[in-house]
Each structure stands twice: as structure tokens, then as C-alpha cells.
Design a protein around this nucleic acid. Structure first.
Length: 464
RNA sequence: GGCGACAUCGCCAAGUGGUAAGGCAAGGGUCUGCAAAAUCCUCAUCCCCGGUUCGAAUCCGGGUGUCGCCUCCA
């Protein structure tokens, strides 16, 4: 299994710190709003990483944090005229609603920043004591010059950062790349007591503390989107490794951005899409297909047209199962013949090459095709390939509500009524009353009931 | 200004030296009373120029274009 590591800028063989176990820390949302489709892509991808590693037999511990105190939350609390903790609760609830709608599995824990204030203060004190941090009037900064190795993740050096220049000068800082560990509170802001006075922790500290507390000093995978490489993750490394002297994270994984029509999503451009709004209009698996059809590190361009296209693609996958009447044999015990395992192998090869989901999806489609061919030609092995199709597809999160989507019976009465209508239509056809027969067909179609006139007679299916 | 990424069929997208996966769309055939569905078939030499090599979409150099990071951001 090979994973691209931002730290080395290469694909590396994946070897967990402790054999058989994988510890993953995923940067979660700052809960000042419902999350957008870009967040959704990131969250969804790391859920796939977790799911795949679990499928491979690793014992995975997966943590995703919730940032529930920070400047944006404070601003939002002013905008909505609600206390910060109420804002946080509101959007945390929204977060859980939305990830469920997206079909993500729950993380093992969702630690919140405000639950770890004491631990953060403790960390900052240690940093200060050991000369990595300094206090200026109640604001505590991390001194980047004191940590040798600063910039190793993002590939920046302190000189370049200085030359960057576009940064607002803060005369309190020794080096302008120094970042805030503890921020003193202005009147009215939520705050906690600390050795430096009332204030709140800086953003970069929470992930270090929660990662170390819940997963240990050295973990396997820490992930987020590319924008977090600098400064967020760079700053995490500095704090964590300054204290422990050990490698904080073995594999840093970063997902690519999602743009809207070639442009970065931003509120000012009015091209901002909340995940919940998109899920209102489109099927969650269509969105999932859209995300996974491109490699996770590439920038992806979002448009509703592409979601519609993805929706058609997903439907054709379901259609394959419909064709072979998967519902009728889904509870049977079927063993997958040896020669069919080559598909699993191809699928795994794709996934194990830095999670090449686009390639893995191609295998899924090949399997769908094979299933139909087996069914039509030989009637052999089609059950096995259907099972394999569902198994592998499920790893990518597809086929999550098969029963609903494959349903051929509404309920007894409705089904019988449809059958009744169809037998009338058959009679009309025999009488060559095409006009009326077609009317019934078209009207049923309007209702989402698709008629198929086959050699064996007329059958119907719910159009998904 | 500094650092970096990318450019493959109408659209989306794999592919990191051995002769272009997959999806969507499109066209044609079969089936059908007509349709739909299904099914079969068709559909690219990889931004440009130069180089390395027996051989390059894949490596090197130079262009052009797009994008990202350097500031809160998934």
C-alpha cells in the first residue's frame, strides 16, 4: 500500500507505527456555519481511507475534531446575536446531520477544542518553559526560529516567509511567522483563565493536544485539505515535536480543493454551496461518485451539470443489479469463484496506489458489465459477480440503500393495482388499441414506474 | 516577488518508458405495433517546440495556458 506523504512529497510504502493498527486524525470543521461541498469532499475522502484500511484488516482508530472556539465563531455569534456556545451547538448538530446525509460513517470520537483547554494551557506552559514560546502582554506566541525544522512540511524556509511580505506586521512578534498559542480576550469575548490572563487558545494548538491525548505522541495519518499544510499543519508539527522530540505524524495526507467553475469558492463571489443544499437537490451517491471519480489530490471543478452526469452513472450501476434481479437472491449464500477474484485484486491495486478511486470505479463498472453478461449469456456466476460488485462498491460507499432503490414492490396493494393496469394494457395491445395502451405506459412512467415489454411479457420497475 | 501543481476524446477522468482504462454524452444495428429498457458495434496518439531513447502521454530543456500556497480557509 502506497500513500503520498506531503512531508516527503512522494508516495511511500505504508507501514503503520504499530503493526496492525492505524491511528488517524482528521481535521474537522470549525463550526461557525454548515459545511460546504468542499468540506464534504475532504470529509468523504478521509472516511474512505478509514473504511479501506478497516477492510484490509487494520484496527483503525479515527478521530475528527470539532473547532468550537475561534474568531469566526465569535464573529458569527455577533452576526446571529447568540452566545458562542449556542452557535457551536447549532452547527455541530448540523454537521452530524449532514455527514449522515452524505453517508459517512461516524468517527470513533469527535473531540471539541473547548473540552481540552486545560491540556492546551499545559502544553503552552511547557513550550514557554522550554524556550519555544514567549508572552507579550497576555498573548503567547510560538517562536518559529527556536524550532529547527520549521517549514519542513510546506517546503518553506524562514527567509522566504520573510520575503513574502504581504503579511500584516505585528510588532509584538519576534518573527512575523510566529503564531499565536494563546490569545488574550477582548471585553465580551468568551475566555478561560490562564497563567497569562483571560484568553483563548490559538487554533493550531487544539489539534496537537487532542491528537496526542486520544491517539498518542506519534500517529500514522493526519489529514486535511491542502490549504491546511501551511500554516496550520506546519505549526502543529512545530509545537508537537518541540515538546516530544518525536515524530508527530508519519503520513501527512492532503486533499485537493474543490472549485466552482474554475474559481475558488467564496462567499463574495456568491458561488458558495452548502452540502445540505446540494443534497436537497441531488442524491448523496451522485455527489459521492462525482468526488471519487477524480483523484483526491487533484483540484476538482464543481458544477451541477457534472453532478447530474454522476447521477446517471450511479443509476446505471443500480440498473445492472436491477437487470439481474439482485433483490431476489441477495440473501443467498454465494461463493465467489477463484477467477473472479482478479477484479478484487484490480480494485485493491488501485486503492493501494495512493487511493486511486477513479481507477477503482472503473473496476466497479467492469464488474457491473460482467454481471450483466453472465446473466444474459450463461446464467452462470452472475450472482457471484453481483455480490462482488456490491461488496467492492460498498467500500467506496455505494449501494448504501439498496433495498429502497431496487424495490420492485411498493406495497401489496399498489403493486396489485399496477399489475391490474398492465393486464388491461396487454388486452388493449391485443386489440391494437395502441393509443390507450401508450397512454397507460406514459402515465405510469410519469409516476416513476417504468414499463418493459419483454418477450416473456410486460414487467415494471420503479425508476429508482 | 518567492514556492508549487496541472494541461489526455464533446464533457468528466485513469495512465510515470513499451505502443491510450472507465464513465457520461453521441452515432449506427438488434429487439419493439411504436417507444422505453436491454443488447451489440463505433468514437483520442495525449497544449506547442526541441532533446534523450530501439521506443515517450509518460524523462529532460524551452514556450504557452490554467490553478494553488505564501493571510482566516476543507
Amino acid at each position: 500500500m502506497r500513500i503520498y506523504n506531503t512531508l516527503s512529497k512522494t508516495k511511500e510504502e505504508f507501514v503503520p507505527v504499530e503493526p496492525g493498527q492505524v491511528k488517524i486524525y482528521a481535521c474537522g470543521p470549525t463550526v461557525y456555519n454548515y459545511f460546504h461541498v468542499g468540506n464534504a469532499r475532504t470529509f468523504l475522502f478521509f472516511d474512505i481511507v478509514r473504511t479501506y484500511l478497516t477492510y484490509k484488516g487494520y484496527q483503525v482508530k479515527y478521530i475528527q475534531n470539532l473547532t468550537d472556539i475561534d474568531d469566526k465563531l465569535i464573529q458569527q455569534s455577533i452576526d446571529e446575536d447568540l452566545p458562542v456556545n449556542v452557535i457551536a451547538e447549532k452547527y455541530i448538530e448540523g454537521f452530524f446531520t449532514d455527514i449522515e446525509a452524505l453517508g459517512l460513517r461516524k468517527a470513533d470520537d469527535y473531540p471539541r477544542a473547548t473540552e481540552y483547554i486545560i491540556e492546551m494551557i499545559e502544553l503552552i506552559r511547557k513550550l514557554e518553559k522550554e524556550g519555544f514560546a514567549y508572552n507579550v502582554n497576555g498573548d503567547v506566541y510560538f517562536s518559529v526560529a527556536s524550532f529547527n525544522g520549521y517549514g519542513k512540511l510546506s517546503g518553506k524556509n524562514l527567509e522566504e516567509l520573510k520575503a513574502g511580505a504581504r503579511v500584516e506586521e505585528n510588532p509584538d512578534k519576534k518573527h512575523h511567522a510566529d503564531f499565536t498559542l494563546w490569545k488574550s480576550a477582548k471585553p465580551g469575548e468568551p475566555s478561560w483563565d490562564s497563567p497569562w490572563g483571560k484568553g483563548r487558545p490559538g487554533w493550531h494548538t487544539e489539534c496537537v493536544v487532542m491528537s496526542q491525548k486520544l491517539l498518542g505522541d506519534s500517529i500514522d495519518i493526519h489529514c486535511g485539505a491542502v490549504d491546511l499544510i501551511f500554516p496550520h499543519h506546519e505549526n502543529e508539527i512545530a509545537q508537537a515535536e518541540a515538546i516530544t522530540g518525536r515524530q508527530f505524524v508519519k503520513y501527512w495526507m492532503h486533499g485537493g480543493f474543490l472549485n466552482i467553475s474554475g474559481e475558488k469558492m467564496s462567499k463574495s463571489l456568491q458561488n458558495f454551496f452548502l452540502t445540505r443544499d446540494i443534497l436537497q437537490k441531488y442524491d448523496a451517491e451522485a455527489l459521492r461518485f462525482f468526488f471519487l471519480s477524480k483523484h483526491y489530490r487533484s483540484t476538482i471543478d464543481f458544477s451541477e451539470e457534472l453532478i447530474k452526469e454522476a447521477d446517471r452513472a450511479v443509476k446505471s450501476l443500480y440498473q445492472a443489479l436491477n437487470e439481474v434481479d439482485y433483490s431476489a437472491f441477495k440473501n443467498e449464500k454465494v461463493t465467489i469463484p477463484e477467477e473472479m477474484e482478479e477484479f478484487r485484486q484490480k480494485f485493491e491495486n488501485a486503492m493501494e496506489d495512493d487511493f486511486n478511486t477513479a481507477k477503482a470505479i472503473a473496476v466497479i463498472f467492469e464488474l457491473a458489465k460482467l454481471t450483466k453478461i453472465n446473466f444474459l449469456k450463461t446464467r452462470d456466476n452472475y450472482k457471484a459477480s453481483a455480490f462482488l460488485l456490491v461488496e467492492l462498491g460498498s467500500i467506496l460507499g455505494f449501494f448504501s440503500n439498496l433495498d429502497e432503490k431496487l424495490a420492485t414492490n411498493l406495497n401489496d396493494l399498489s403493486g396489485k393495482l399496477i399489475d391490474l393496469l398492465l393486464s388491461c394494457r396487454t388486452r388493449l395491445k391485443q386489440e391494437k388499441n395502441w393509443q390507450l395502451a401508450d397512454l397507460i405506459r406514459d402515465d405510469l412512467n410519469e409516476l416513476g414506474i417504468q414499463i418493459k415489454d419483454t418477450a416473456e411479457g410486460t414487467i415494471w420497475r420503479l425508476n429508482r
